[in-house]
Design a protein around this nucleic acid. Structure first.
Length: 693
DNA sequence: AGCTCTGCCGCCCTCTGCTGGGGGTAG
DNA sequence: ACTACCCCCAGCAGAGGGCGGCAGAGCT
């Protein structure tokens, strides 16, 4: 008979094949003295792997297990795939089972080709007349998968005994349907199940011909712990049985073989048989390099080629080569013909492979079948989920070979290397302005932020102009930069800052909102109040002096020193203005500008602006010209000047007042910009009358 | 049984685009 | 000193291309 490989994987059904569907030659090949030789090509490691993977796990027979067998028809032979059923661990009765203790029952001859230790056990049971069944318990402790490669046996006699009554295994025989149902619910059955931790192979015997009713049994293991949504073993068996039955009914006409496990049909028996093997896990072809097994020689050969690097299918258009012809075809489509047979019905997308189309369609449907177990993220394909998981694990598999910075994605690293370590890095010019940006994505952000159309009106801060593009608005507002937008309604004064205009307006209104808390004196500007407080009420105040390096003259204002230096040739202001520090240089430039402005504004009669320009830039009295003792006096004079009392007015006051001291004259002279020596030389310019303040 | 084709799954890659923090600059 | 602005940059996800490998089925 044909070699029937044992499958011990968890097929959930018992396979039944009619002998008439099996190659007769095969049967005869295996027959020798009525003995069915059996082959199993699986390796010990594979079997062990299957065993450890749970195929042979102990389990309690919980579900109702239907053993579906083909109807009994005389003179037909059957191959039965036996299903193992796991029972609980109290194997008592079978412990003494000797190796190869297949008990030959009355009229039953059971032969096991490669017996191994402790393999089969066949107990006496109630006889069935024609349709027989047997229960074979294999004590799990003794069961060595490597050694039970063959479990075919022939029942040469009419009757095959099943599990004995003693074993309390109850098997109901559905005679009319040709089904045998193992009813778990029956008490006897349960007793055995509870008592033994066995794998039971339920065997049906079909009546053979009168001389040699031969039953060919193959054994398959089945874990009774069935997966949800999967048909029970019994259901599957039933399907198979019906399938077989149906096939038999078509005998004589041109047959179509229907697989009732799946939708497969075939007019060829060989195809059908081959297909039915797909419902088992038979993989008899072992790779000697990695011990992996395959169903067919072709698969094994292709697999071995992956080990050896043999790539027989070479591309004619490039130097690529592939293990299989299919890979070559696919490669050709991708690289050379660009044929894309799979077209999306919702867009123009087309792909070489159906799986790519399937993946693509998810972008339309929004389907995200791959859920992250640690967050709410779900991806549309497995790779994205795997990549996403790095965000949880912190894994950064990509390292820059130059600076050894690590990255989570290869693309990120590539950009990093290009931007940080690359030469002639491409830049991206904004098409709407002169901006050049290193990254295309950032250019897009730039375009979106600055050049995107804004439905809302973007109003200029300084004028009524409105824009719909942010960049245009910014450019426009820059035009207001040096504009003296604030114009005095009482005079021609104009300035850039509103606070300057506010201060200026007070020169017209006479308002002095800033009051000194120490002396109740009022000021138009806060800066003036601060200066006042420092000079009059701060004992630590030391006025700064701008001293000419050439002639030694001191000046309270930097601008005065500047003016002096132009005449004296010392270049003080120039050197000061060209200081190295950016901030210092800028400040000096500002001072110079402000001073010049103050000069001009003063020339234009705008005293307030001139005073503001001078007093707010830190002008101080020349301290060494005025001893500390007279500091209060000089400050008071200065204050009067700040408050709009001109020096000429002050001199007139002194001239007309008694008690005006020489120091006061000195202050007046200084305020008028007259050199000290003029005073010294000229003595009392306006007399020595004492001025009382 | 072997060859071939097709389908499917998985893996890895690239390209792309968005996001948000960092840091420099100018006001 | 503070703030707004904007480019730089890394992180991360979406989409798709290409290939490796295996399984199933038609055909010879």
């Amino acid at each position: 008979m044909a070699a029937t490989e044992i499958s011990v994987l968890s097929e959930q059904f018992t396979k039944i094949k009619e002998l008439e569907l099996m190659p007769e030659k095969g049967l005869k090949e295996e027959e020798k003295d009525g003995v069915c030789r059996e082959k199993d090509h699986r390796s010990p490691s594979e079997l062990e792997a299957e065993r450890t993977s749970g195929a042979f796990q102990d389990s309690v027979l919980e579900e109702e297990v239907e053993l579906v067998l083909a109807p009994s028809e005389e003179s037909e032979k059957h191959i039965l795939t036996l299903q193992t059923v796991h029972f609980t661990s109290e194997a008592v009765e079978l412990q003494d089972m000797s190796l190869l203790s297949i008990q030959q029952q009355e009229g039953v001859q059971v032969v096991v080709q490669q017996p191994g230790p402790g393999l089969l056990w066949l107990e006496e049971g109630p006889r069935q007349s024609l349709q027989q069944y047997a229960a074979i318990g294999i004590q799990q402790e003794l069961y060595s998968l490597q050694e039970i490669e063959v479990l075919q046996f022939h029942a040469l006699e009419e009757n095959v005994m099943v599990a004995s009554e003693d074993s309390k295994l109850a098997v109901s025989l559905a005679e009319t349907a040709g089904l045998i149902k193992v009813e778990e619910g029956q008490e006897k059955n349960q007793l055995l199940a509870e008592r033994t931790k066995e794998q039971l192979f339920f065997v049906e015997t079909m009546s053979g011909d009168e001389r040699s009713d031969e039953i060919v049994l193959t054994v398959s293991n089945s874990n009774v712990e069935e997966q949800e949504d999967q048909p029970t073993a019994g259901q599957a068996d039933a399907e198979k049985a019906r399938s077989t039955k149906n096939q038999r009914k078509t005998k004589g006409a041109k047959q179509t073989f229907h697989c009732d496990v799946c939708m497969f049909t075939s007019s060829r028996m060989s195809s059908f048989n081959r297909h039915m093997k797909t419902h088992t896990n038979e993989k008899p072809h072992l790779c000697h390099l990695c011990l992996k097994t395959f169903r067919t020689v072709t698969l094994l050969r292709n697999h071995v080629n992956t080990h050896t690097g043999t790539r027989p299918y070479k591309c004619n258009d490039c130097n690529m080569a592939f293990v299989t012809s299919g890979e070559l075809v696919r490669h050709t489509r991708y690289k050379h013909t660009h044929e894309k047979p799979f077209k999306c019905s919702m867009c123009k997308y087309a792909s070489v492979e159906a799986s790519k189309l399937k993946r693509h369609v998810r972008s339309h449907t929004g389907e995200r079948p791959f859920q992250c177990c640690q967050c709410s993220y779900a991806s549309r394909d497995t790779y994205k989920l795997k990549r996403h998981m790095r965000t949880h694990s912190g894994e950064k598999p990509y390292e820059c070979h130059i600076c050894h910075t690590r990255f989570t994605q290869s693309g990120t690293m590539k950009i990093h290397i290009l931007q940080k370590h690359g030469e002639n890095v491409p830049k991206y010019q904004c098409p709407h302005c002169a901006t050049i940006i290193a990254r295309k994505s950032d250019l897009r952000v730039h375009m979106r932020n600055l050049h995107a159309y804004s439905a809302a009106e973007l109003k200029c801060r300084y004028c009524p102009a409105v824009f719909h593009e942010r960049y245009a608005l910014i450019q426009h507002q820059k035009t207001h930069k040096n504009e003296k937008r604030f114009k005095c309604k009482h005079c021609s004064y104009a300035c850039k800052q509103e606070r300057h205009m506010t201060a200026h307006i007070r020169t017209h209104t006479g308002e002095k909102p800033f009051t000194c808390l120490s002396c109740n004196k009022c000021f138009r500007q806060k800066q003036l109040l601060n200066a006042h407080f420092r000079k009059y009420h701060d004992a630590n105040f030391v006025p700064t002096v701008y001293k000419c390096s050439k002639c030694g003259k001191g000046f309270s204002r930097w601008i005065n020193l500047h003016r002096h230096s132009e005449k004296c040739g010392s270049g003080e202001a120039k050197s000061a203005a060209s200081g190295k520090g950016r901030r210092t240089r800028k400040r000096k430039q500002t001072i110079l500008k402000e001073a010049t402005k103050g000069q001009k504004e003063a020339a234009n009669g705008d005293e307030a602006a001139a005073e503001e320009a001078s007093t707010t830039k830190g002008e101080q009295f020349p301290g060494e010209m005025f001893p500390v003792a007279c500091r209060e006096t000089t400050a008071r004079v200065k204050e009067e000047v700040d408050e709009g009392v001109t020096c000429e007015m002050l001199l007139n006051m002194m001239d007309n007042s008694a008690g005006c001291t020489g120091r006061m004259m000195l202050v007046s002279a200084w305020l008028l910009g007259r050199p000290q020596e003029t005073y010294n030389q000229g003595g009392r310019r306006r007399g020595s009358r004492r001025v009382t303040w």
